[in-house]
Amino acid sequence: MPAMPAWFLPALMTFLCWGLWAFLPKLTTRYLDPRSAIVYEALGGLVLVALVWGSGAGRLGGEPRGVALALITGSLGVGGALAYLYALQKGPVALIATVTALYPIFAIVLAALILQEPVSLRQGIGIALGLLAMVLVSR
């Protein structure tokens, strides 16, 4: 049996964490409005950040462009999470999670346009099918 690639376990953990991340807010919004929920979600994230920071894993980098991009990324993540909570108040988690889980399509298009990363014909077809899936699932 071949050895598991080094990236597989972290990718599996991402899969599990993000799967729960997509599901649990539907339960949360039964008890809290989205504005309250996002505050508690962010506090939960801060707990993890404090653990990472306090683990002594090293000094924080300080390159201004990296810091600015990281801050923007964090803001977009929280903004997306807030929008997700509002969507969950109005619709079924199965459909909303499916549509929002197609976000890599947008990232792939940006990577192709801005970073000049190649997109093969097969990948392009996959992107088109993903967009079609978004349309079909949302109707």
Rank of each mutant, 00 (worst) to 15 (best):
T28N: 07
A3Q: 05
G45L: 02
M13N: 14
Y31Q: 08
A94D: 05
W21C: 04
M13H: 14
G61N: 08
L16Y: 01
G58C: 12
Y103K: 14
M1K: 09
L69E: 12
V93P: 05
L12K: 01
D33V: 00
P34S: 02
V67P: 03
S36I: 00
L27Y: 08
T98M: 12
A87F: 02
A11C: 10
W7D: 00
A87S: 06
G80Y: 11
W7I: 00
L82N: 03
R59T: 12
A101R: 13
G79D: 14
Y40E: 00
K26S: 08
G77K: 07
A81N: 02
V52L: 11
A101Y: 15
P104S: 04
L24K: 03
F15Y: 15
V47L: 07
K26C: 04
P5M: 11
L20F: 11
K90M: 01
S55G: 15
L102Y: 10
R59D: 06
E41N: 03
A68S: 12
Y31E: 06
L60S: 10
L32M: 09
A101P: 06
G45D: 03
L76S: 13
A87Q: 03
L46D: 03
L95I: 03
A57Q: 11
A81Y: 01
W53E: 08
A22M: 11
A94R: 12
L76V: 10
G58F: 11
D33H: 04
G79R: 10
A68Y: 14
T98N: 11
L71H: 13
G66W: 08
T73D: 04
Y84H: 03
I72A: 15
A22P: 03
P10H: 09
G80E: 06
V52Q: 10
V99H: 05
E41R: 10
F8R: 02
Y84P: 00
A83E: 02
V99C: 09
R30S: 15
L51F: 13
L12M: 12
S75Y: 09
L46A: 11
A11V: 04
L43P: 07
I105P: 02
T14E: 06
P2K: 13
V67T: 07
F15V: 08
V78Q: 11
I72R: 13
W21R: 05
T28H: 07
L24V: 06
I72K: 14
T29F: 01
G62P: 01
P5L: 12
K26L: 02
G62S: 08
E63L: 10
G62Y: 02
S36H: 05
A87D: 02
I72E: 13
A50D: 04
Y40V: 01
T100I: 06
G91Q: 00
V47N: 03
G91P: 00
S55Q: 10
F8I: 09
T100K: 11
F15A: 11
V52G: 03
P25H: 07
R59I: 05
I105E: 01
R30N: 15
I105Q: 08
